[in-house]
């Protein structure tokens, strides 16, 4: 479904050229959920953004559903994008539009007429159980609800692929589970291929079929999530090993066992 071939993405910065994605190849089978994990600055977002050409790679090929995106003209690319939904960490909803109008926006851009827009948007809102919020404005919703609107907006045009950039990084842990549940349902019920970028291994463990580990613009390791069921499984790279253990390890110093009286007084006042 998604075929990334030797993609490199380079930014011109004041300090010279920065290779954000360095010769990455990735194949995502139709109907699967691909996770991309790595630390901040690893190039995950840039790689994801090449999948709908929000970022044009300097070299390589980006093939979605059999179409080489780099071979399309402006109009053809816009049409292709109607079939590739995107979900953002900070939702990117329009504050001055109702939930209904926000979802209709993707349909409007796809050239869908007014009545059909209304119907399709209502249907998409139904999938994320937000039909009752159609008339609300984003500011009246919780983070999790905003993200579900973002998902509905992306789904409304019936895409075959959904690209999610840190979809749960701006919501609390309990909401994370709910957002992931909706994404998982979308994958299972509608057969939409998902790519999920995250820096949290528990997100990957919860939802992905396969994961690619990124570091310094390169995919340094990839594995199938079923591998984790084998207790003897050890990732090949240090970063892979680090990421699959969720434990935070600190170098804890022995604790000084007294608090100076002056400090104690200061604390007690607060």
């Amino acid at each position: 479904m998604i075929d990334i071939q030797n993609v490199s993405s380079v930014f011109d910065t004041p300090d010279g050229q920065l290779t954000a994605v360095d010769d990455v190849s990735l194949h995502v089978p139709e109907g699967s959920i691909q996770g991309i994990i790595g630390f901040s600055g690893a190039g995950k977002s840039t790689l994801l953004r090449t999948m709908n050409l929000l970022e044009r790679p300097r070299s390589g090929r980006v093939i979605i559903d059999g179409t080489d995106l780099l071979g399309l003209d402006v109009h053809q690319l816009r049409t292709a994008r109607h079939g590739i939904g995107m979900v953002f960490q900070h939702f990117n909803l329009l504050n001055n539009l109702t939930v209904q109008k926000n979802v209709e926006l993707s349909l409007k851009f796809a050239g869908v007429g007014r009545t059909e827009r209304r119907r399709a948007a209502a249907e998409a809102l139904d999938i994320v159980d937000l039909a009752d919020k159609a008339g609300s404005y984003p500011a009246q919703l919780s983070g999790g609800q905003k993200q579900r609107v973002g998902i509905a907006r992306a789904l409304a045009t019936q895409p075959r692929v959904l690209l999610c950039d840190e979809p749960t990084s701006a919501v609390d842990p309990r909401t994370t589970a709910s957002v992931l549940q909706y994404l998982s349902d979308v994958n299972a019920r509608l057969g939409i291929t998902l790519v999920i970028v995250t820096h949290e291994m528990n997100v990957i463990k919860a939802i992905a079929d396969n994961v690619a580990v990124m570091e310094d613009g390169r995919v340094v390791e990839r594995f199938d999530l079923t591998a984790l069921q084998n207790p003897g499984f050890v990732p090949a790279t240090p970063i892979g090993r680090y990421l699959i253990t969720d434990d935070i390890e600190l170098d804890r110093r022995p604790r000084a066992n007294t608090v100076a009286p002056a400090d104690a007084a200061r604390y007690s006042r607060v």
Partner: peptide
């Protein structure tokens, strides 16, 4: 800038980004 980014991802034209976003 996030809303413009979202509009681009939805395949909006420049005119649509100006008018509708």
């Amino acid at each position: 800038g996030g809303v413009v980014e979202a509009a681009r991802s939805m395949g909006a034209s420049r005119g649509q980004i100006i008018r509708d976003v």
